[in-house]
Design a protein around this nucleic acid. Structure first.
Lengths: 229, 229
DNA sequence: CAGTGGTCTAGACCACTAC
DNA sequence: TAGTGGTCTAGACCACTGA
């Protein structure tokens, strides 16, 4: 008995092996029904999911086609450092360099949807993995989203984890670039001033609006990923 | 008449507005069938797709739950620069700095599955968008995967686009990091030596094995993305 | 055991495309 | 008009969970 994933396997293999090339028409749903002796719903699901995966393009009235693989895509995940380290079997620790309320700068206010000078919570942490400095985290938090933020011990639980608890994430934006470390940043991370660092900036939104803006500066960090047809 | 996307909208809204929080149990398929007066297949599809989107976790025999949004994920796409610029309505041009066959270095041979010293094709291009240097592309290609590579005019069609044509992509791996520009690289990109650059390295595989290894060095480039529940 | 999700069927009606 | 995909139905059997 054939299942939808048998049909997917057969199509994936054919595409991988060049039986159909980019732009070619695939067998119609009706043809696949006959070939695999399954109902149309089953074939439809197989094709629909291949479409979501980006492997197939479907057009009503015309047919299903092999999608041009013009974009290499992969899931990029920005995760809680502590979990990340734990999954690698590494030890993670965070040193709290600062934790206070301060007036919002123009940039910060803009990102968080506040007025300039309004009170925001700020924290700065140095994360180490296996004792090696890995990330300098500077974070600004909307007080109403996490009123008890300043009373937390971020040596025990990362701000990321805490905020996910008290203000579940509904959306986020990120931005990745290469920057030169300032003298202060360099000394925290154990680098020379001016050394290139990967900077990730992330704005998190909860149900009630912006929650937190984070500036994550990494020492010799490499983002990796892969993509498979 | 309710459709699967009506059900998805209702669930998404409830999750966004905090009606169900991370880990909470959602209504069962049977309950949703009654509530929306639809068949179970329709409800099932709605929930299955929310699961693929990462918003819902389903467990056989237990129920459907709001997924913990512990990872901020987004599709990272590494695309053809020319198309990318075109979609922004910008002009793109590429200057060919080098195009030749050469013996594979150890790194290159390793990445491409060749022996050291074996003949590989090499090209180096400077990409400009709106006249501004944007990316320095250095690329090594397995000759058997694209025998006519050296005869192409990469001022007209990018190597990425050409290779997608002659050796459709089946898989790729990428790696993103921050590096300092070497004096040569800096002069190409119009930077000072040592300035931080975003380096993307990408290994592409076709049906017959590794096709190409690219080293893409960017000037003041920012990768951006977003994630929405 | 009852309730849950995982999957499949054999029909159906519709909108769209191409001829 | 014939063929395509988009969607839905009202059942069905199964594997798994928890009481």
């Amino acid at each position: 008995m054939a299942t939808y994933s048998d049909i997917q396997d057969w199509l994936r293999t054919g595409i991988r092996e060049g039986r159909w090339r980019a732009g070619d028409r695939l067998p119609s749903e009706a043809e696949l029904c006959l070939q695999f002796s399954v109902s149309r719903m089953t074939v439809n699901r197989a094709l629909r999911e291949l479409q979501h995966a980006g492997l197939v393009r479907r057009e009503q009235g015309r047919g299903s086609f092999v999608a041009p693989l013009e974009r290499v895509a992969a899931r990029l995940e920005l995760r809680d450092l502590h979990q990340d380290a734990a999954e690698r079997g590494h030890h993670h620790e965070a040193e709290v360099l600062g934790l206070r309320a301060e007036p919002a700068s123009a940039d910060c206010a803009h990102a968080l949807g506040l007025r300039r000078g309004q009170r925001v919570f700020f924290c700065q942490l140095l994360h180490r993995e296996q004792g090696v400095p890995l990330q300098l985290e500077s974070r600004w938090v909307v007080p109403s989203a996490a009123p008890a933020f300043l009373e937390q011990d971020f040596g025990r639980q990362t701000p990321t984890a805490y905020l996910l608890q008290v203000a579940p994430l509904t959306a986020a934006q990120y931005q990745i670039e290469a920057v030169a470390a300032s003298p202060e940043e360099a000394s925290c991370l154990g680098l020379e001033a001016g050394e290139p660092c990967l900077l990730v900036q992330r704005l998190s939104h909860g149900a009630a609006g912006p929650v937190s803006w984070a500036r994550l500066l990494h020492r010799r960090y490499v983002l990796q990923g892969s993509f498979t047809a």
